[in-house]
């Protein structure tokens, strides 16, 4: 079961990273949240401290996706879970990331205000790719997709990750 959770975590995390890129071009809520982050801001998200991090970067109010990196140095913000099972609860849409954060399950290395921004972005991305019921639960309101779920997933999976230095 743990291995299955590991595979799901890895797939969903990658999907979230790629979806950030697509949505940063299309979704007004994500655009607004991105405007709070400084230019060239970099963030890594992982299921546990010594795991693989998806790395994203803000450039010209858009998100670039750099794929997986092992414990990347010199990035502005690292966000990871205390245990992979805690990550699974969030990535398998059993619990919102906000709830996980308030339960002390999330560790942050970097500026907390920017971490809050990243959490809002992940919430919106999850609301896009998960069920309507989950979207309503995590955002406590009727969630309107500005691009369809199917279109988002198809475009995300066909997205090439950025090459070269972060």
């Amino acid at each position: 079961m743990k291995y299955l959770h590991h595979i799901i975590d890895k797939f969903i995390l990658s999907l979230i990273g790629r979806s950030c890129t697509i949505l940063s071009d299309r979704d007004s809520r994500i655009k607004k949240e991105l405007s709070y982050l400084p230019e060239n801001f970099t963030a890594g998200v992982a299921v546990k401290k010594k795991g693989l991090y998806i790395v994203i970067k803000k450039q010209e109010n858009k998100v670039k996706y750099f794929g997986y990196h092992r414990y990347p140095e010199n990035i502005d913000l690292k966000l990871y879970f205390k245990d992979e099972e805690f990550a699974y609860q969030v990535l398998a849409a059993k619990e919102g990331i906000r709830q996980a954060f308030s339960e002390h399950k999330v560790v942050v290395e970097g500026d907390l205000e920017y971490a809050v921004s990243l959490i809002y972005i992940i919430e919106i991305v999850e609301a896009y790719i998960m069920s309507d019921q989950f979207a309503e639960e995590v955002l406590a309101s009727n969630f309107e997709r500005e691009i369809s779920r199917l279109q988002l997933i198809f475009r995300s999976l066909s997205l090439f990750r950025e090459k070269g230095e972060i």
Binding site: Y36, R98, S102, V116, S117, I119, L139, A140
Partner: peptide, 18 residues
């Protein structure tokens, strides 16, 4: 509002604060 929305304690508040 901008500043408060990005305060980490807000994530622990009742409801999803808007």
């Amino acid at each position: 509002i901008d500043k408060a929305m990005h305060n980490s304690t807000l994530l622990n508040s009742a409801g999803q604060v808007k």
